[in-house]
């Protein structure tokens, strides 16, 4: 039997909420797919479009940006800026013809370990039928 395709996801998690949320999932021993490479950033607002493109360029099959819920940002407004910027990036990627499922954004608080595992489970399920991301990947 052919081995099932396991997508590689790069997740940019904000230090104060989403990263803490993923930690909570870990210390609570919740089970979720091991397909994520988490990268902790100070704030979802600090995620440059370059980070996202660079992840796709180096072979990510999916990219997730996750931050605090509106109103909860440690820096007050960072996630509002992110919301705007990511909306534009998402639409532009779609315009270029990248499968829209490959790029996601979420709000995950430090208490939402369960939500985090669910987001990853869903993301992996959506990516599996798409197969490897080759469009933006640098040829090797």
């Amino acid at each position: 039997m052919a081995e099932e395709f396991e997508p590689k996801i790069v997740a940019f998690l904000c230090k104060w909420c989403s990263s803490a949320g993923s930690d909570l999932a870990g210390v609570s021993r919740m089970e979720y797919p091991p397909n994520v490479v988490p990268i902790t950033v100070m704030c979802s607002g600090s995620v440059s479009p370059l980070y996202i493109l660079s992840a796709f360029n180096k072979g990510a099959d999916g990219v997730l940006v996750s931050g605090c819920h509106p109103g909860d940002c440690h820096y007050i407004k960072g996630n509002y800026y992110a919301r705007r910027r990511i909306a534009l990036v998402k639409r532009l990627l779609d315009y270029f013809g990248l499968e829209p499922q490959r790029f996601q954004m979420s709000w995950v608080s430090a208490a939402e370990g369960v939500k985090y595992t669910q987001i990853i489970k869903d993301f992996v399920q959506e990516l599996k039928p798409l197969g490897p991301q080759k469009k933006l990947r640098r040829a090797q």
Partner: peptide
């Protein structure tokens, strides 16, 4: 080095995407 100097699709894509989004 966010993108390579090679004029290949993957790198050209990074260039044009960033150029466009920077002008949003």
């Amino acid at each position: 080095k966010w993108l390579e100097k090679s004029p290949v699709l993957s790198e050209n894509f990074v260039y044009h995407f960033i150029r466009a989004i920077h002008l949003a």
